[in-house]
Each structure stands twice: as structure tokens, then as C-alpha cells.
Computed example of a mutant assay.
Amino acid sequence: MTYLSEMNEAIARASRLGLKTPNFQLMEGQLLNQKVYQDIPYIVRDAMGDASLEEVAAQCLSYHMRLLPILNDYFGTELTYTIGHVAVGSKIYFEQTEDQMQALIKSGVTQPQLSIHAWLTLPTCEILDFTLPTTFAMLSKTKEGYGSVLSGHADRLLNDVSYHPMLLGEDYLRRIGALVEFEYFL
């Protein structure tokens, strides 16, 4: 299944769950290039400050939410806040089924930790994940991956990594009580 197919299924899933979802408009070509890779560290630093590793690791929900409007401005197009799971080879991380999502919508979050992951999807089906490499580095107690960004076209990522969107936008997080409202000021 292609990433675009999974994005379309995520839109259908949101409808089945009674959630609002952003409008994902596919764009041909690619937006990630050498200039973007040169600019991104400075954009993130200016937006987030010199975040400690603890402020990045396992903070995917808020970190990507805070970067979304800034990167929308930078790219001049709408990126999509994407919730789902990640596979590295045959190992799956942060998986939630539709039934589990439905149950959380009914009950809300009852545990302090939630197995969930979020990243940003560009309209070209390229992804930007600012937290997963640092999270994995901290969990494995290694420096490899600290501060890295996992990026590229979702159907062509390296090292047998694949991203699987389940929902688009933040409505699910708000409905289950996992995301607090915040004001964004320029």
C-alpha cells in the first residue's frame, strides 16, 4: 500500500470515527531539497530555542504541533499533522487500531503515557519527523540519532523505515484529552 493510499484511508477512518480532518491536497514533485535541509536547523532553532534532548525525545505530539504553522509559512503550503505508527523492518512502534482509537474517544486518556506518534506530511507525501531519531537514541542509550530529522518521500525512506498514517490533524488528540489548547504568536 502506498503512503498516499494510507493517507486517504486515514481520512476515511477519521470520518468513521466522527473526527474532523484537514484537507490533504496532493502536490506533484518534491519540496525537500538541499536548501531546505540547510534552512531547517535554523528554522527549528529559532522556533523552539535550543531544546534539550529530553524536550525533543518522546514529545512528538507537541513538538510537531508547534512547528506546523512555522513550516507552513516556510514552505508556503499546508503541511499535515499526521498521527500513526512507524515500522522499522518487522518491528512496529506506536500502533493503535481503529477499535483502540474509538475506545479512547469514548473514555479519554486515563494513563500518563500514550503509545502514539505524530509527524508532519508535506503535500508531496514527503515527511518530516523531528523527534523519532532522538527518541530512539535516548531509548538505546546511544548518541547516534540525537537531534536528527527523519525526512524524505514516505514511500522511499532508507533503513527499512516506513510510516503509516492513521489519522490526520489534531482533532483526535483534543477529543481524547491528549493535547491542550495553546496560543501561537509570531
Score class of each variant (00 low, 15 high):
A14L: 05
S15M: 01
R16G: 01
G18W: 00
K20P: 07
T21Y: 04
F24P: 02
F24M: 01
L26A: 12
Q30D: 15
L31F: 09
L31A: 08
L32K: 07
L32N: 04
Q34P: 10
K35N: 12
V36F: 12
Y42P: 06
Y42T: 13
I43C: 11
V44G: 02
R45Q: 13
R45M: 13
D46G: 13
M48R: 11
G49H: 02
G49N: 07
A51I: 06
S52T: 15
L53R: 15
L53M: 15
E54H: 15
E55F: 03
E55Y: 01
E55C: 04
A57K: 14
Q59L: 08
C60S: 10
L61A: 03
R66V: 11
L67C: 00
P69H: 12
P69M: 08
D73H: 08
F75W: 01
G76N: 08
G76R: 04
T77F: 11
E78P: 08
E78L: 04
T80I: 09
T80H: 08
T82A: 11
I83K: 09
G84D: 03
A87L: 10
A87Q: 13
G89I: 09
G89W: 07
S90V: 12
K91H: 13
Y93Q: 11
Q96D: 05
T97D: 05
E98P: 06
D99S: 12
D99Q: 14
D99M: 06
M101T: 06
Q102F: 09
A103D: 11
A103I: 04
A103W: 00
K106D: 03
Q111F: 08
P112G: 04
P112R: 13
Q113V: 12
S115E: 12
S115F: 11
S115W: 11
H117V: 00
A118I: 08
W119I: 07
C125S: 11
F130N: 04
P133E: 05
T134G: 05
T135W: 01
F136W: 05
F136R: 10
S140Y: 13
K141V: 10
K143T: 06
E144Q: 09
G145W: 03
G147K: 05
V149E: 04
L150Q: 06
H153F: 10
A154S: 12
R156V: 06
